[in-house]
Design a protein around this nucleic acid. Structure first.
Length: 261
DNA sequence: CGCGACCTGCAT
DNA sequence: ATGCAGGTCGCG
């Protein structure tokens, strides 16, 4: 579930559980997670106190009182599980135990999540966060002018904007009426402005959705997305049929009649 | 650039 | 059985 809004909610949960706590043990249950967090690193986490949990794009950063940091990336299907049931679900790939006895588990059916221990604040070449004021039309226009990749592919590039993934890229382009195939350097300033507004609106509404439904299983509104995964259905704005194309190996959904190049 | 690899589960 | 999935990296 993890694009910016989902990670934001997950980070808030981790913050509530872990801030001010000392890690007493780290259990790594899957080989894939052992690759990024080898046993010696898992052991080296014992006794570390978590001073803060931050989010940068889709990554979460657990700051430790000794200056080190734990970097967590959910990739495709990761999420936090809390509280952790007595009987661990098979998909619980890693479990933290804290000094107050509480536990926090990384739940990830596909086990693609990455957790790694850094000596200091990790250097990142991520662009501005999708909900940060630094994502200005001026900044984005300049970044887009430097390439000529399709705008949908540009939105997935975390070094341009951090936090947007495959779903919200399609959603933001639909909102701003931009064809996902438009070369990034051919977007005129007014359309870049519209795109920035659309990104913010898309993230805001997803955040609102997350606040309502995060951690609950049932009752997902069927109309959550305007275009994502709606191939063949009707466009809510103009009634035409939603198309699916593949860009950079990922599905893009859009309305050919109201999204223009 | 696109494409497979990394993993597992789900729908067809 | 096949193909697909909300992400990223490294390869040719």
């Amino acid at each position: 579930m993890p694009e910016l809004p989902e990670v934001e909610m997950a980070a808030a949960l981790a913050r509530r559980v872990a801030t001010g706590r000392t890690i007493t043990s780290v259990l790594v249950r899957h080989r894939a997670q052992r690759r990024s967090l080898p046993p010696r690193d898992a052991r080296a986490l014992r006794g570390a106190r978590v001073t803060a949990v931050e989010r940068r794009g889709k990554a979460q950063l657990f700051r430790l009182s000794d200056g080190r940091a734990l970097l967590v990336h959910f990739r495709m299907t990761g999420d936090w599980l809390h509280p952790v049931p007595r009987r661990l679900p098979a998909t619980a790939r890693l479990v933290f135990t804290f000094d107050d006895g509480s536990r926090l588990a990384l739940d990830d059916p596909r086990a693609l999540s990455v957790i790694s221990l850094c000596d200091g604040p990790p250097a990142s070449r991520a662009g501005p966060d999708a909900i940060a004021p630094e994502l200005s039309p001026t900044y984005l226009a300049a970044a887009l002018a430097r390439r000529r990749i399709p705008i949908k592919v540009a939105l997935l590039d975390q070094s341009i904007v951090a936090g947007i993934g495959n779903i919200y890229a399609s959603e933001a382009l639909w909102r701003s009426r931009i064809d996902p195939r438009t070369p990034s350097n051919r977007l005129e300033p007014p359309r870049v402005r519209a795109l920035v507004r659309a990104i913010r609106a898309t993230m805001a509404s997803a955040l609102k959705y997350q606040e309502r439904y995060y951690g609950r299983e049932a009752r997902e509104p069927a109309n959550r997305f305007a275009v994502y995964d709606r191939e063949g259905k009707r466009c809510r704005r103009c009634g035409s049929t939603i198309s699916r194309i593949v860009q950079a190996g990922r599905s893009s959904y859009f309305c050919r009649s109201c999204q223009k190049r």
